[in-house]
């Protein structure tokens, strides 16, 4: 059962230089209780793609397509219905909790506000529930922290407060946009463990947006790789890393040094060139100009996502690469 189905999603910005297509006919679905990673580099449309699900995209953009949340099309429902869904059914956490938390309000009051607004809890009941939530997300001495302000907490603790707020109303879907990117690696490890535990205990689905293939390998059940606003490859996580097939996915994996590789014996493969700026929906492969395998056909036809061997694996490429990717160790 899918909790979310995104079909033909388009987001176009009106800029001084003309329209810019940020999300270009994007399709994906999120199953109940699943952790889906959306991975891609800056400017690939991964953030605006999830903001537009609940009408949170910037004002100079237009959104098209279908976003079905448990059968309800979110792109056609009223603003008041969206307000009711936001935070209650679908909750967000962002990279920088400082911009999302109110600096003038104590941690306890902020988390309680969500409970009182969406669930109509009394002040006393909300307060008790806040303590439970803070404990659930791994904040030590939760009761004593109710009265502190966000600036008194470390970055990792602030992100935990954000997670507590996000799960306060027991959402069916949690969208986490680069939740650990601003954090140190030892703190990141703790936040990832917490997200996994929450999924296991509460059964919510999680969409995590990241550029870090290590984070993907750690947390995801399934992966969607985005490039220039499109899903160019998607597969269960083990399948994707075992058989990366799109030249861009393979490039991303090869660009990062592996354990044991040293510059004296190994050359990293970057991806030359830049992400194109799309003025209208693409009619050819957007990666062709940076791709070593591109043919005339790639510049004439837009490749559509198609299933390939390997359960649940789809790729949008005319020249899918099936050679094993040798990420040799100890080179």
């Amino acid at each position: 059962m899918n909790v979310l189905e995104v079909a033909d999603l388009g987001v176009t910005f009106a800029t001084e230089d003309g329209p810019v297509v940020a999300v270009d006919r994007l399709d994906y679905e999120v199953r109940e209780g699943e952790i889906l990673a959306i991975v891609g580099e800056s400017g690939c449309g991964k953030s605006v793609g999830v903001l537009s699900l609940l009408g949170l995209q910037p004002g100079n953009s237009t959104v098209s397509g279908r976003v079905s949340y448990r059968g309800e099309d979110l792109l056609t429902v009223s603003e008041s219905r969206l307000r009711g869904l936001r935070g209650r059914d679908i909750a967000y956490i962002f990279q920088d909790p400082m911009t999302a938390l109110n600096p003038l309000m104590t941690v306890g009051t902020q988390v309680a506000e969500t409970l009182r607004k969406h669930l109509g809890m009394s002040k006393a009941a909300a307060r008790e529930r806040v303590v439970e939530l803070l404990e659930l997300v791994g904040i030590p001495a939760a009761r004593e922290r109710l009265g502190v302000y966000p600036h008194q907490l470390s970055g990792g603790m602030r992100q935990r407060v954000m997670i507590a707020m996000a799960i306060a109303c027991d959402p069916k879907l949690l969208i986490a946009d680069e939740p650990t990117t601003a954090l140190d690696v030892t703190v990141q490890a703790g936040i990832i463990e917490t997200l996994k535990e929450l999924r296991d205990r509460l059964g919510m689905a999680i969409v995590i947006i990241t550029h870090d293939m290590g984070v993907v390998a750690d947390i995801a059940d399934r992966v969607v790789v985005m490039y220039a606003g499109k899903a160019i490859e998607s597969a269960p996580v083990v399948e994707l890393f075992a058989h990366p097939t799109h030249p861009y996915t393979r490039g991303l994996l090869q660009a990062v040094p592996q354990r044991g590789q040293h510059a004296t014996a190994h050359r990293l493969k970057g991806i030359s060139g830049n992400v194109p700026v799309l003025r209208s929906t693409a009619v050819a492969c957007s990666f062709a100009d940076r791709c070593a395998f591109a043919s005339d056909a790639c510049r004439a036809v837009r490749p559509e996502p198609a299933p390939i061997a390997g359960a649940g694996h789809t790729v949008a490429c005319l020249h899918p690469q099936t050679e094993p990717l040798l990420l040799q160790k100890g080179a």
């Binding site: 290590g214 996580v237 890393f241 592996q258």
Partner: peptide
Amino acid sequence: AAPVADPVEQRGRERVVLRGEI
């Protein structure tokens, strides 16, 4: 703490998650 970009290896690793923060 640094995750490796290999889901099979990453999920099989033992790791100590640190108490508290710096």
